[in-house]
C-alpha cells in the first residue's frame, strides 16, 4: 500500500480493500436462522417479539426470526411516536406484510409526553432515549404476555460505536445481527428480498424528524464499516490504518468512540468482596444445562 494514498474520510476504497465486507449470504442466513431457532428453543420458548421500525436492521431481524420460528410465531411491534416519519410505519407494515407476520401497532406518544409534561426543557437526546426505553418496556411486556423472547436488532457498527440507548434498543435476549456491520446488513437484507423502500432510504434512528444516522455520526456507514473491519476484526494498528488510506483524525475519533462506549457492551460493574463474584470468578455459560 502506497504511503502516497491520499488521506480522506470519505474517499474511495483503498486498493486491495474492496470486498473485505463481502459475506456469503446463503451461509450467513443458515447460521443466523439456526441460531434463532436453537437459542429461542433452548430457553423453552417457541415465539419471538421484534420491534419493527421500518428500517433495514429490524426488517432483517424480523425476516430471520420468521424463517427460524415461522411468521405465525413472531410478533412484530411497530411503536411510532407522533413525530416519527409516517413513511417509517408504512415501511414497517410493508415488511411485516411481505413476511406474513401480523404486526401490533402501539403509539408511544401518550406515555412519552406524559413524562415530559413536567420536564419541558428536556433536550431531544433525552427525549429520544426515553422513547427507546418506552419501546423496550413494551417489547418486554408483550414478551411476557405472549411468551415470546425479545429478539434484538442492533448491528455491529452501532454496537461498536455505542450508537444506541442503553437499556433501550440495546436491551434484548438475543441478537442475530450483532456481528454484521451495517454494510453487511444491507447485503443480507437485499439477498433476502426485503422491500426496496427499506433498502433505499437513508438510515435513521427516527427519534426526531429528519434525523440521519450518517449526519449525526459525521461519517458514512460504508467508510466506518471498512475502518472498523480493519481495526477490530483484523486488529490493525493506527500506522497500518493510515497506510490503508484512512485519515488519522477519523481513525482516532472512531477508536475513541469504541473505547468510550465499552460500558454499553458489558454488564454493570459489581464491587468485588467474596471469593466468587458474579461474572468475574463465578463464570457459567448462559446456556447452562441447555
Amino acid at each position: 500500500m502506497s504511503a502516497a494514498t491520499p488521506p480522506s474520510a470519505v474517499g474511495p476504497p483503498a486498493p486491495g480493500d474492496a470486498g473485505v465486507l463481502v459475506i456469503d449470504c446463503v451461509l450467513v442466513t443458515e447460521i443466523l436462522t439456526g441460531f434463532v431457532r436453537e437459542e429461542v428453543g433452548k430457553v423453552g420458548f417457541r415465539r419471538g417479539v421484534v420491534g419493527l421500525s421500518g428500517g433495514v436492521d429490524s426488517a432483517l431481524t424480523l425476516a430471520i426470526a420468521c424463517r427460524a420460528l415461522g411468521a405465525e410465531n413472531v410478533v412484530p411491534i411497530v411503536m411510532p411516536y407522533r413525530t416519527s416519519s409516517p413513511a417509517s410505519e408504512r415501511d414497517a407494515r410493508r415488511v411485516a406484510a411481505q413476511l406474513g407476520a401480523d404486526p401490533l401497532v402501539i403509539d408511544i406518544s401518550a406515555q412519552v409526553d406524559a413524562y415530559f409534561e413536567r420536564l419541558p426543557d428536556a433536550d431531544r437526546a433525552r427525549r429520544g432515549n426515553k422513547m427507546a426505553r418506552e419501546r423496550m418496556s413494551i417489547l418486554y411486556d408483550v414478551s411476557s404476555a405472549r411468551h415470546a423472547l425479545v429478539i434484538g436488532t442492533s448491528n455491529k457498527t452501532e454496537l461498536l460505536l455505542g450508537y444506541s440507548t442503553i437499556h433501550g434498543d440495546s436491551a434484548y435476549a438475543l441478537n442475530p445481527i450483532g456481528d454484521l456491520y451495517k454494510t453487511q446488513v444491507y447485503a443480507l437484507a437485499g439477498h433476502l428480498g426485503l422491500p426496496e423502500e427499506v433498502l433505499a432510504k437513508a438510515p435513521s434512528a427516527d427519534l426526531w424528524e429528519g434525523q440521519s444516522d450518517e449526519e449525526e455520526l459525521g461519517f458514512s456507514y460504508a467508510l466506518v464499516d471498512r475502518l472498523l473491519f480493519h481495526m477490530v476484526d483484523e486488529r490493525r494498528g493506527r500506522d497500518e490504518l493510515l497506510r490503508l488510506g484512512f485519515d488519522g483524525g477519523f481513525v482516532d475519533q472512531v477508536a475513541r468512540r469504541v473505547r468510550d462506549s465499552q460500558f454499553k457492551r458489558r454488564p454493570p460493574l459489581i464491587a468485588k468482596l467474596s471469593q466468587r463474584t458474579i461474572d468475574r470468578d463465578f463464570r457459567y455459560p448462559r446456556d447452562w444445562g441447555r
Partner: peptide, 11 residues
C-alpha cells in the same frame, strides 16, 4: 466453532 463468513460458500 464456525467463524469466517466471507465469500466462498464455506466457513
Amino acid at each position: 466453532p464456525g467463524r469466517g463468513v466471507g465469500s466462498g460458500a464455506e466457513l
